[in-house]
């Protein structure tokens, strides 16, 4: 908590990276996100917490327009990234997603080799000048995903043959390899053991130096450890948003307090 407060001081200096105002999401008739306003800072880790089904993943998916792929989903309101409305007609969602990377709640490695899984993004976006360069990018990404040591001898084995936790870290490495400016992580540690969790948290700390990271988590401890800002969602509403210290030590809303002390959830 102590260095959390230190970091909090310098977050206040950062610019706003994402600014969402008045966001509504409907799945058919189901109003899943209601009136959400939030400003996410650059070079900051923001945690989304809240009970299951409250709309954390849904809101996260709005930030890189992944909800476009769901037929029944409808989004209203405004989301600006670097002062640009991402739901504007001019914006190409494909380009946007290269800039706003995502790690999904369920690990979803491609049925390709481990190497090709990680090389997929860099190849598509032409990030590597040559084969050696690509090898470096892949190795680097796997290291940051805290899985390099486990897979370095079988880079050409299928990614689907890894264990659940290894697959999740592979997906993290895959997302990091495209060098996004914003990384959205939907419960990245839900399938990981404490050691791997620790490594992923280290990665998040490291990413914060250059990127903005949004992480959904069900672990209060994790939110407290890695984030500087925390948003608490409940039944589709953003109930409270503030610095992590404030949310955990001095919540203003009674629902927030009940949730973090384990009374609702």
């Amino acid at each position: 908590m102590k260095d959390g407060r230190l970091e909090e001081r310098d977050t206040t200096m950062q610019d706003t990276k994402i600014k969402a105002s008045n966001v509504q999401v409907y799945y058919g008739d189901n109003h899943a996100i209601k009136d959400v306003d939030v400003e996410i800072k650059d070079k900051t880790v923001t945690a989304f917490i809240g009970p299951s089904g409250c709309g954390k993943s849904t809101f996260l998916r709005c930030l890189n327009r992944m909800n476009d792929t769901i037929d029944v989903a409808r989004i209203e309101g405004k989301i600006l990234i670097d002062d640009e409305d991402i739901y504007d007609r001019k914006v190409d969602p494909v380009q946007l997603r290269a800039k706003v990377g995502m790690v999904f709640q369920k690990p979803n490695p491609f049925p390709k080799s481990i190497y090709d899984n990680v090389a997929y993004g860099p190849k598509i976006h032409g990030l590597a000048k040559n084969k050696a360069d690509l090898d470096d990018i892949v190795e680097n990404a796997l290291r940051r995903g805290a899985i390099w040591d486990e897979v370095k001898d079988r880079l050409h084995a299928p990614g689907t043959g890894l264990s659940g936790g290894q697959q999740q870290r592979l997906c993290i490495a895959r997302a990091v390899a495209t060098e996004p400016e914003i990384l959205l992580m939907d419960e990245p540690c839900s399938a990981l053991d404490p050691i791997a969790t620790d490594q992923v948290e280290n990665l998040i700390h490291e990413l914060r130096e250059n990127y903005s990271v949004v992480i959904v988590t069900h672990s209060m401890q994790q939110a407290a450890r890695v984030s500087q800002k925390t948003a608490f969602f409940h039944l589709g509403n953003l109930v409270e948003y503030g610095t992590t210290d404030q949310i955990f030590q001095n919540p203003h809303d009674s629902r927030t307090e009940s949730y973090i002390t384990g009374r609702i959830g």
Partner: peptide
């Protein structure tokens, strides 16, 4: 989920179809 994974990395539809 495989399509989502590919779109999430900024791939287009036809890249996703061809490569995934």
């Amino acid at each position: 989920s495989l399509r989502d994974g590919s779109f999430g990395l900024g791939a287009t539809k036809s890249e996703t179809i061809r490569q995934v």
